Simulated scan of single mutants.
Amino acid sequence: MKSRRSFLLKTGLSALAFAVPKIESFSGGSPKKFAAIRPVQDGPVLKVALMGLGSYAARVADAMQSCKRAKITGLISGTPSKLESWSKKYAVPEANCYNYETYHQIKDNPDIDAVYVITPNALHKPHALGVAAAGKHVICEKPMSINAKDAREMVGFCEKAGVHLLIGYRMHFEGNTLKVVNMRRDGAFGEIKFFQGLSGFRIGDPNQWRLNAELAGGGAMMDIGIYSINGARYMVGEEPIWVTAQEVKTDPVKFKEGVDETITFQMGFPSGVVASCLSTYSMNYLDKFFLNGTNGYAEMQPSTGYGPIKGRTHQWPLDEPHVTHQTTQMDEMAAIILDGKKASIPVDGEEGLKDMVIIDAIYKAVKTGGKVNLV
């Protein structure tokens, strides 16, 4: 397994050399006031290839069976047995199955409109660029890269290629999340004063790629901490202007150099709002958002899990019906790509880049022990 991952990393990075030359060119009222999301309209179906057939891809694939606007039409994996079993399970023709050395051939395949990149973090950039060079739209799992520099290159490359770059922010389409965001936008909470985001769980297998600095680009922050970063931004409705951060590592054997175990971090916003957050791989039951304003509050727990999302505001419980997040995400992304629909909370490459800039700053703050300005 380790050798296959090394091969993936090498072949993924080598895709850059192949790909780059290809591009030329509120206070009261009824809860109904805060409708969560406009339904996706009927229309053409987005033909999607899944790249990287791991556990999360399996979740996405199963969820897509209920999609109205997105369908699995291609598979990309370095494991022949997965290609065989997945092609049978999801009725994907053998001709639409590729490995990491041949996936560039999707350029000539009209059965594929977009590729959902669900490979290890360090491979997101080379794989996304390879897909874009083939003229296909890119849906990339978060974090979109391992640093802001790579994220900027991804955004620019996809723009030049004339393809969409969307990031897998499933919470941006979740009903209760959107209800809270819409309440905040309509002034239901008054002046926002504080946000708290707790994101963490106890990670298992010490040999998994998420604990490999080379493949993950970090540790808990890259995997789970990004939820509190992104959540703070859409819950507060501003972009942070500074960060501070502190790291605690209790198990240096499991969490080696470059792999963060626990980081507490703070973000300051232009209005004076402060976000206090925690990212960890060593504690369970940490999936909570709390937004406080002069006229009210919103509390969500769980706030970013696979669902259902639960919580309440100062006015009423959060009770939007649960729909599998990835089903909604893929239908909404199909509407963005095919219909030009605008997401209520952006899910484009620029949105992903903003999170990467903040993550870079948090890691810098951990090392320096000081405040890192973002503007």
Rank of each mutant, 00 (worst) to 15 (best):
M1T: 09
S6G: 08
S6I: 09
F7I: 09
L13I: 12
L13A: 04
A19D: 06
S25H: 10
G29R: 02
S30L: 11
F34V: 14
Q41T: 10
D42A: 15
G43Y: 04
G52V: 11
R59V: 15
C67R: 00
G78S: 12
T79Q: 05
S81W: 04
S85A: 12
K89C: 00
Y100F: 15
D111C: 07
A114L: 08
V115F: 11
L123S: 11
V131K: 00
A134K: 02
C140Y: 04
K142R: 12
K142V: 12
P143Q: 10
M144R: 01
S145P: 12
A151K: 00
R152C: 07
V155F: 03
G156P: 00
G156R: 01
E159Q: 10
L165H: 05
L166R: 00
R170L: 01
R170K: 04
F173T: 06
E174V: 09
L178C: 08
V180C: 06
M183L: 05
E191K: 13
E191H: 13
K193P: 03
G204E: 15
D205E: 14
Q208K: 02
W209D: 15
A213Y: 14
G217E: 03
M221I: 15
M222V: 13
D223R: 02
I226W: 03
Y227T: 03
G231L: 01
A232R: 06
A232Y: 07
G237M: 06
W242L: 00
T244R: 07
Q246V: 15
V248T: 14
V253E: 13
F255N: 02
E257T: 14
M267P: 12
S271C: 06
G272A: 08
G272M: 10
V274Y: 01
A275W: 05
Y281I: 10
S282M: 06
M283P: 01
D287I: 06
F289V: 04
N292E: 15
N292D: 14
T294F: 01
M300E: 11
S303I: 08
G307S: 08
P308R: 08
I309F: 12
G311F: 14
T313V: 11
Q315C: 11
T327D: 11
Q329C: 10
Q329I: 03
M330V: 14
I336V: 15
L338Q: 06
D339E: 11
G349K: 00
E350L: 11
K354S: 15
D355R: 02
M356R: 02
M356S: 09
V357Y: 11
A361C: 11
N373W: 12
V375M: 05
